[in-house]
């Protein structure tokens, strides 16, 4: 395969991994986070440390990276998840920036100059495999009582408490799973770029992830997949416009948000059964239309 296209697909896959995690938190649990780049950084640096300095194999290093990110999120969640609404969002923003600034000053990881020489382990196939597993895990989770409890919290927090849902526990679970996804994405990124620099995990990265989730549609896993593919590929497709590239990107996002405020697939999933349903409905509509014309009984 063309290495250029392969590169774009790998980047989209890395973004997708982080976006899937954020999708659980934002799309299904209703908590906005602007600190997910921070979790990516933690996962990235941890896994790179394990492969470079301790010569671990790739996959265990990735998983431990995700785990460490989840641990950090548990600490953050413990102190901030009792905050209502926007305050949690601000707290995550602060967290993300704090992680970046701390890494800027840790000389063990190369500080602000960055850390070159990380082995190139990430390829299209392991990115694809990991994303496949990630989607399956997420889909199964969403369709379980745990996932439905998270959705209930998103819909109506007070009512979900009254029907016996431990809101805090479910929020923190959602946050931890979400952060571990971001952590694994960070690890993939480190071993694809073969270079890490705290600047890669700035607020811009967190915002990009949130934009993808909203663009794809809140509460839709397939929407997140579509969003990650489209919004990672778009800047590359637009490369020939050079300086107008980011303007086009912004416009595309704005146009989608105006014409479909719920995002590309807000609340819907593209599964074989839902496609079949849609197909049947369209066919019925067509038939109804035909009958109406033939019978001439439309008033």
């Amino acid at each position: 395969m063309n290495t250029y296209i392969e590169g774009i697909l790998i980047l989209a896959g890395i973004n997708l991994m982080a976006v899937l995690g954020l999708s659980l938190l934002t799309g299904f649990t209703g908590l906005f986070s602007f600190g997910h780049a921070g979790f990516m950084a933690i996962g990235g640096y941890t896994s790179a440390m394990l492969t470079v300095k301790f010569h671990w194999p790739f996959i265990p290093a990735l998983l431990v990276g995700g785990l460490v990110a989840a641990l950090f999120s548990a600490i953050i969640g413990k102190v901030t998840l009792n905050l209502k609404g926007d305050y949690f969002c601000i707290a995550t923003l602060g967290f993300g920036e704090a992680i970046r600034l701390i890494l800027d000053n840790v000389q063990y990881f190369g500080g602000a100059r960055g850390w070159p020489g990380i082995p190139n382990y990430t390829n299209l196939w392991n990115v694809l495999g990991i994303n496949l597993v990630a989607v399956l895990v997420l889909a199964n989770l969403i369709r379980s009582r745990h996932g439905r409890n998270m959705i209930a919290i998103r819909e109506e927090e007070l009512a979900s408490q009254i029907v016996g849902i431990n809101v805090f526990k479910h929020k923190i679970t959602s946050l931890m799973i979400s952060a571990s996804y971001a952590g694994i994405a960070g690890g993939l990124m480190a071993h694809y770029m073969t270079f890490l620099q705290p600047k890669m995990f700035s607020l811009v990265k967190s915002t990009e992830l949130t934009i993808i989730v909203i663009f794809g549609g809140l509460g839709s896993i397939s929407g997140s997949v579509l969003g990650a593919l489209v919004l990672t590929a778009l800047p590359e497709v637009l490369r020939s416009f050079s300086q107008w590239r980011l303007v086009c990107y912004g416009l595309a996002v704005i146009i989608i948000m105006i014409s479909r405020p719920e995002g590309l697939l807000g609340g819907y999933e593209l599964t074989p059964s839902s496609m079949k349903k849609l197909y049947n409905r369209l066919r019925l509509k067509k038939q109804a239309g035909k009958q109406g014309l033939e019978g001439g009984d439309i008033q």
Partner: peptide
Amino acid sequence: RLFKRLSVYENVLIACHKNASYSI
């Protein structure tokens, strides 16, 4: 205070959850 955007069935289903105990 219903779960407004969920179906009638899901509203009741979520409230039944305490009778299940399977883990994540």
